[in-house]
């Protein structure tokens, strides 16, 4: 009826977390190859991760590094070579060079285009379809109507994030390391990472005297996320009516337990919406979700306007 997916960075998180609310798991952190035992950069861990997911009757998608430089292409190629020997249900790319590498290697597995793939139009989706892409994650700036238009006019699956922080910008080096005292001693990528991203880091611009706009963003080192959590729990009926079927909860950067709590709420809300049941009282769910979101909730760009707004069902 519909698919609900989320992301998990490594085997430890996969084994210790509860992801039973999800139909599919995107394995790996596409933003940082240094992230501990990241599936995206550890070919030797792929089989164990894949088996863990498949054993639970879920689909396993592998995320490939989003912004490889020339020096990264060799190890990314090694990860791809290992992955192509395994029964992954799809590989996710954000980088068109990596997409080309997959085609050169004769990849027959479905390919998903990730959030940093800059997908804005149905015509681009058609070009990518020729390269083996079967699912696209439209740029978060697109409205729901535009997302539907692409799905219909490019004859392609679209992944629709329904909850979690919105990826806003990515970098090839670590912002946390570059601005820490420890980081000054080493360079990002030289093996000296002290994993300071295990602590939450935030960018703030507000001032009590009102002389600056009250802006807040979360930073995971190589990726900056929205401060607020995208929340579409009140809009399941609309998503179902639009014919959208593939939904996603962003988990990277969140504390243990986040994906489980959010997943349970969305599993229930979407199941009801797809069954055509009357909308329930969302207040308890919103209370829980707001409690997990330090900076509050938003709808991203789905209903047009700046990404921080929240529009409820009414």
């Amino acid at each position: 009826m519909f698919e609900l997916s989320t992301d998990v960075g490594n085997l430890k998180e996969l084994r210790e977390g509860d992801f039973s609310a999800y139909d599919a798991i995107y394995l790996g952190d596409f933003s940082c190859p240094e992230y501990p035992n990241n599936f995206s950069s550890h070919a030797e861990l792929l089989e164990a991760g894949l088996q863990h997911v498949h054993a639970r009757g879920q689909k396993a998608y592998l995320r490939l590094y989003a912004v490889p430089g020339n020096d990264d292409l060799a190890w990314v190629g090694d990860v791809i070579d290992t992955a192509l020997q395994l029964p992954f249900d799809a590989l996710e790319v954000h980088n068109l060079g990596v997409l080309r590498m997959l085609r050169e290697r004769g990849c027959t597995a479905p390919v998903h285009l990730g959030v940093f793939g800059n997908l804005y139009t149905h015509e681009t989706a058609k070009v990518l379809r020729d390269f083996g892409v079967t699912r696209v994650y439209p740029n978060p700036e697109l409205s729901l109507d535009e997302v539907r238009y692409i799905a219909e006019h490019a004859d392609i699956e679209v992944l629709v994030p329904v909850h979690g922080k919105i990826p806003l910008v990515i970098s090839e080096t670590c912002f946390i390391l570059e601005h820490s005292e420890e980081g000054a001693e080493g360079a990002c990528g030289d093996g000296s990472c002290s994993y300071q991203c295990t602590q939450e880091h935030w960018l703030k611009r507000g001032r009590d005297d009102g002389s600056r706009a009250d802006w807040s963003l979360k930073d995971t080192g190589r990726m900056t996320l929205s401060g607020k959590d995208l929340c579409m729990v009140e809009h399941g009926e609309r998503l179902a009516d639009m014919g959208l079927k593939h939904f996603y909860v962003h988990n990277k950067g969140e504390a243990p337990g986040y994906a489980a709590a959010v997943g349970r709420i969305y599993r229930d809300a979407l199941a009801r919406a797809f069954a055509g049941e009357a909308a329930p009282d969302f207040a308890p769910a919103l209370d829980t979700l707001a409690g997990l979101a330090r900076e509050g909730l938003c709808n991203g760009y789905y209903f047009e306007g700046a990404g921080q707004r929240y529009i409820g069902r009414s």
Binding site: P140, V169, S226, G307
Partner: peptide, 19 residues
């Protein structure tokens, strides 16, 4: 300049904040 967030091309910070 070999560090920094990838701009333009991989950034939508501005539209998230203001419109």
């Amino acid at each position: 300049v070999q560090t920094g967030k990838l701009c333009p091309g991989k950034c939508i910070m501005s539209s998230y904040l203001r419109f």
